[in-house]
């Protein structure tokens, strides 16, 4: 464990908690893409099956359980409890265009052709594009609530910190995982446009306006 991975995990946890609390407190999921949240729940489910097979550390197990729990709680709030506030008309990204290619790629490019490894690879590829429905929805509505932009900021920051963690681990431990690194670079690049807007419009403090 190094400081970059720890702050990355905490940034990820912060994003997940910010979103869950926002929906819970405002009792509304307006402006939130339920599709992205379903994809994240799928990412955690397929990646953390090793909860059943191996124990790494208390930290590792605890964080995985929190991530999975919060992901499903968020999906529940969006599609069940606060369903009336779900903005389905703007959450129209065709997720099958993400899941099918990612599923195929996981079969073709992986470290080991075993079920657990293919599911892990699928989850890594899926995570890199899981935010697209959310970014697409914001570009359609043309704006995002401030709290939603904080959620996206921490979510984008987490994988950027993981990239530094992988540089650190390669240099000090000789460890690297090309699949995770390439997917992580793609994932972080997708946030670049948002990061620019978040920083440049941060001063205004008003609703962020994304280019349509």
């Amino acid at each position: 464990m190094n400081i970059f991975r720890l702050t990355g995990d905490l940034s990820h946890l912060a994003a997940i908690i910010i979103l869950l609390l926002k929906i819970w407190k405002t009792r509304s999921c307006a402006g939130i893409s339920g599709k992205s949240q379903v994809l994240f729940a799928l990412v955690f489910t397929t990646r953390y099956l090793d909860l059943l097979t191996s124990f790494i550390s208390l930290y590792n197990t605890t964080m995985k359980i929190i991530y999975i729990g919060c992901a499903y709680a968020t999906v529940y709030l969006i599609y069940m409890k606060f369903k009336a506030t779900y903005d389905g008309n703007h959450d129209t990204f065709r997720v099958e265009f993400l899941v099918v290619p990612v599923g195929g790629l996981a079969f073709l490019v992986n470290h080991d052709f075993s079920p657990l490894e293919i599911l892990w690879t699928f989850s890594i590829y899926l995570e890199s594009v899981a935010i697209l429905p959310q970014l697409f929805m914001i570009s359609k509505t043309g704006e995002a609530e401030t709290i939603t932009t904080h959620y996206l900021f921490f979510l984008g920051l987490y994988r950027a910190l993981y990239l530094i963690n992988w540089i650190w681990r390669f240099y000090f431990e000789g460890f690297f995982d090309m699949i995770a690194i390439v997917a992580g670079v793609v994932q972080t690049i997708l946030y670049c446009d948002f990061f620019y807007l978040y920083v440049t419009k941060g001063e205004s403090g008003s609703n962020k306006i994304n280019p349509a």
């Binding site: 991530y67 993981y162 963690n165 690297f176 090309m178 699949i179």
Partner: peptide
């Protein structure tokens, strides 16, 4: 080395 056997990252 390539990816570690044990996946210790979240």
């Amino acid at each position: 080395t390539t990816a570690k056997e044990v996946k210790d990252e979240l």
